[in-house]
């Protein structure tokens, strides 16, 4: 399902997050993430950000069926920058979806 976005994901990862990771998840997959079930519980939850000692993580709703997960080491990014990068990636993906 997400193969068509592989190019965009690869490009933005190389550009913004060389030491992080960018993944697209389905609703089922996101429900298995920490706190991911809140997306299903309350559709007004559009983004979940959390910090662990070693990493920072942003999960953001792209569509109600598609979620973007961005992970980066705590040492490289603060949470504001990571959120900003996530928004940029979302914009690129939305443009890609619209173009199809």
């Amino acid at each position: 399902m997400f193969k068509k976005f592989a190019g965009v994901i690869g490009d933005v990862r190389a550009q913004y997050l060389p030491d992080g990771s960018v993944e697209l998840l389905t609703l089922d997959q996101v429900s298995k993430e920490d706190f991911g079930s809140l997306f299903d519980l309350a559709s007004r939850v559009t983004r979940i950000v959390f910090e662990r000692p070693s990493e920072r993580l942003v999960i953001s709703m792209l569509t109600t069926e598609m979620y973007l997960k961005v992970t980066a080491p705590s040492s490289s990014y603060n949470i504001g920058i990571l959120s900003n990068i996530t928004s940029r990636i979302l914009d690129k993906l939305r443009m890609e979806i619209k173009a199809q």
Partner: peptide
């Protein structure tokens, strides 16, 4: 969940 998984902070954004 935060204590079990050693998560330092969680932020939930609404729209």
């Amino acid at each position: 969940e935060m204590l079990a998984k050693q998560i330092d902070s969680v932020t939930l954004y609404f729209d």
